[in-house]
Lab assay of single mutants.
Amino acid sequence: MSIQHFRVALIPFFAAFCLPVFAHPETLVKVKDAEDQLGARVGYIELDLNSGKILESFRPEERFPMMSTFKVLLCGAVLSRVDAGQEQLGRRIHYSQNDLVEYSPVTEKHLTDGMTVRELCSAAITMSDNTAANLLLTTIGGPKELTAFLHNMGDHVTRLDRWEPELNEAIPNDERDTTMPAAMATTLRKLLTGELLTLASRQQLIDWMEADKVAGPLLRSALPAGWFIADKSGASERGSRGIIAALGPDGKPSRIVVIYTTGSQATMDERNRQIAEIGASLIKHW
């Protein structure tokens, strides 16, 4: 067993022997300050990975656009099909120029040879490739089937209704393509630590998230040396920005953090900075 597999395998073990964890309200002060700075709603939740206990939250049951954070859930659904023998990570999918949508930095380079399901999930999570996400959605039956998968997991909140890039419209009070911080955190925890996926698939999912290449300005920018993070960011219209992450010190994840914001007129750089500052406060008061 590799060191990485050993780390994931021990998560349920540590759950039975973990020391108590305590929240620090200073982080919530920073979350509220971020709302003021951005002139927008901010949703935040911090969940103990082992016990599932909510350590701190702000607007945990308000809806926010999922943006590209849905791609982790999508690849979780794909992996569940792999575990059930209904899909193969090595299966090659061919597509055409007509399938390409905006922001497809990986898939646009493989029009001649296609990409495997594994490569598409990697592109969707690590590079947030939109065409990769659409091709993967097709393999499971579309957005409604992803919503059904989540319902079967016990998540009756999170929903995907449209494809890339339309799902990023982020219209106020529109429940399409939205989640709540509490629902997303719970669902992510189930995918990473529960029995829904095999150990190999849980490890694959967290490996893809750990290799995320487009979330550098967010929580990763505040991460001390030696800390672990596996994450997925998202951005969409109407000043929306978000990130879902499993992180912790000593090279292993111990908490789930979900941050969403929407309705801001601030620049992308400012939205990134506010999320990074929330992360810095979280780490300082860990």
Results as ranks from 00 to 15, higher is better:
residue 200 A to H: 12
residue 144 K to Y: 12
residue 12 P to K: 12
residue 219 L to P: 01
residue 91 R to Q: 04
residue 143 P to G: 01
residue 89 L to P: 05
residue 258 V to C: 08
residue 57 S to C: 08
residue 9 A to C: 11
residue 86 Q to C: 13
residue 283 I to R: 01
residue 243 I to C: 03
residue 147 T to R: 05
residue 240 S to V: 01
residue 55 L to T: 03
residue 214 V to D: 03
residue 41 R to T: 05
residue 66 M to R: 00
residue 159 R to T: 05
residue 216 G to Q: 12
residue 249 P to M: 03
residue 274 Q to G: 07
residue 33 D to E: 13
residue 83 D to Q: 06
residue 201 S to C: 06
residue 153 M to W: 05
residue 17 F to V: 11
residue 173 N to V: 07
residue 206 I to Q: 11
residue 116 T to E: 12
residue 199 L to V: 15
residue 224 P to E: 01
residue 223 L to P: 00
residue 166 E to I: 07
residue 88 Q to P: 01
residue 133 A to T: 10
residue 165 P to V: 06
residue 146 L to M: 12
residue 284 K to N: 10
residue 174 D to L: 02
residue 10 L to E: 03
residue 50 N to T: 15
residue 92 R to S: 10
residue 264 S to G: 14
residue 198 T to I: 04
residue 171 I to R: 13
residue 207 D to N: 09
residue 206 I to S: 13
residue 152 N to S: 14
residue 242 G to I: 00
residue 27 T to R: 00
residue 90 G to S: 14
residue 66 M to L: 15
residue 84 A to K: 15
residue 73 L to G: 03
residue 228 F to C: 02
residue 150 L to W: 01
residue 183 A to S: 09
residue 95 Y to V: 06
residue 250 D to A: 09
residue 82 V to S: 06
residue 24 H to Q: 06
residue 83 D to N: 02
residue 32 K to S: 07
residue 48 D to N: 03
residue 250 D to T: 06
residue 183 A to F: 05
residue 113 D to R: 11
residue 147 T to A: 03
residue 242 G to C: 05
residue 202 R to Q: 15
residue 241 R to D: 02
residue 94 H to P: 08
residue 277 E to V: 08
residue 153 M to G: 05
residue 200 A to G: 15
residue 166 E to Q: 10
residue 62 E to K: 03
residue 104 S to A: 05
residue 51 S to I: 01
residue 126 T to L: 04
residue 270 E to G: 03
residue 220 R to L: 01
residue 175 E to R: 06
residue 189 R to S: 11
residue 145 E to A: 13
residue 104 S to V: 02
residue 169 E to D: 10
residue 36 D to R: 15
residue 177 D to V: 01
residue 218 L to F: 02
residue 101 V to A: 08
residue 60 P to N: 06
residue 32 K to R: 08
residue 215 A to R: 02
residue 241 R to N: 06
residue 187 T to V: 03
residue 168 N to C: 04
residue 147 T to C: 06
residue 189 R to T: 07
residue 4 Q to E: 13
residue 51 S to A: 07
residue 214 V to L: 11
residue 177 D to C: 01
residue 181 P to S: 01
residue 67 M to S: 11
residue 226 G to T: 07
residue 168 N to W: 02
residue 113 D to N: 10
residue 152 N to T: 14
residue 109 K to G: 13
residue 97 Q to L: 14
residue 11 I to T: 10
residue 203 Q to D: 14
